[in-house]
Amino acid sequence: MKANDSIRFLAGASITTGYANGSFKPYDSVTREQFSAFLARGLIPVYKQKTAMPGGYAANMTKQYTFRGSAGETIHTYKYVDKKMVGKNLGFVWESKNVNNGSTDYYSQSENKDALTSGQPYSHSYIDLKYPIKVGQSWPLELNGDHTSTITKMNVTVKTPYKIFTNAVEVSSTRKYKMYYVQGIRNVKTIDPSGKVVSELKSIK
Score class of each variant (00 low, 15 high):
residue 38 F to Q: 05
residue 115 A to T: 01
residue 109 Q to A: 04
residue 99 V to S: 12
residue 94 W to Y: 09
residue 59 A to I: 00
residue 65 Y to F: 13
residue 163 K to P: 04
residue 72 G to T: 09
residue 2 K to N: 13
residue 120 Q to Y: 09
residue 112 N to I: 05
residue 3 A to K: 07
residue 165 F to C: 05
residue 60 N to I: 03
residue 129 L to Y: 00
residue 109 Q to T: 06
residue 38 F to R: 03
residue 193 P to V: 11
residue 119 G to S: 06
residue 137 Q to E: 15
residue 8 R to V: 04
residue 59 A to G: 03
residue 56 G to D: 07
residue 104 T to Y: 04
residue 188 V to I: 15
residue 32 R to C: 05
residue 8 R to K: 14
residue 88 K to F: 10
residue 98 N to L: 07
residue 154 M to K: 13
residue 176 K to R: 13
residue 164 I to Q: 15
residue 202 K to S: 06
residue 29 S to I: 08
residue 55 G to F: 11
residue 163 K to R: 15
residue 25 K to G: 05
residue 45 P to A: 09
residue 165 F to L: 08
residue 122 Y to E: 06
residue 203 S to D: 08
residue 172 S to Y: 04
residue 178 K to R: 14
residue 30 V to R: 06
residue 164 I to T: 15
residue 201 L to V: 02
residue 88 K to C: 07
residue 170 E to V: 11
residue 157 T to F: 10
residue 85 M to P: 00
residue 171 V to S: 06
residue 154 M to I: 12
residue 125 S to T: 14
residue 160 T to L: 03
residue 33 E to Q: 15
residue 155 N to L: 08
residue 59 A to N: 01
residue 56 G to P: 06
residue 55 G to Q: 11
residue 160 T to K: 03
residue 205 K to D: 11
residue 128 D to R: 02
residue 90 L to V: 13
residue 189 K to V: 09
residue 200 E to G: 04
residue 78 Y to K: 00
residue 42 G to S: 15
residue 65 Y to G: 00
residue 69 G to F: 01
residue 124 H to T: 14
residue 54 P to A: 15
residue 80 Y to M: 10
residue 76 H to S: 11
residue 66 T to W: 01
residue 44 I to M: 12
residue 135 V to F: 10
residue 45 P to T: 09
residue 139 W to R: 04
residue 171 V to N: 04
residue 42 G to K: 01
residue 94 W to M: 02
residue 101 N to H: 09
residue 164 I to V: 15
residue 182 V to E: 02
residue 1 M to I: 09
residue 136 G to F: 13
residue 62 T to H: 02
residue 133 I to G: 02
residue 58 A to T: 03
residue 159 K to W: 09
residue 153 K to Q: 14
residue 32 R to Y: 11
residue 109 Q to E: 14
residue 180 Y to R: 06
residue 123 S to I: 04
residue 83 K to Y: 05
residue 140 P to G: 07
residue 204 I to S: 00
residue 149 S to N: 14
residue 188 V to Q: 01
residue 147 H to L: 10
residue 35 F to W: 12
residue 109 Q to D: 02
residue 89 N to A: 11
residue 166 T to G: 11
residue 186 R to V: 00
residue 172 S to A: 14
residue 21 N to T: 06
residue 12 G to F: 00
residue 90 L to N: 05
residue 151 I to V: 14
residue 137 Q to L: 01
residue 78 Y to W: 04
residue 190 T to S: 15
residue 141 L to S: 08
residue 182 V to H: 04
residue 7 I to C: 07
residue 32 R to K: 14
residue 155 N to Y: 10
residue 202 K to G: 03
residue 196 K to H: 11
residue 178 K to I: 04
residue 89 N to F: 05
residue 123 S to C: 11
residue 72 G to L: 09
residue 197 V to W: 07
residue 118 S to W: 07
residue 192 D to A: 13
residue 27 Y to H: 12
residue 43 L to M: 15
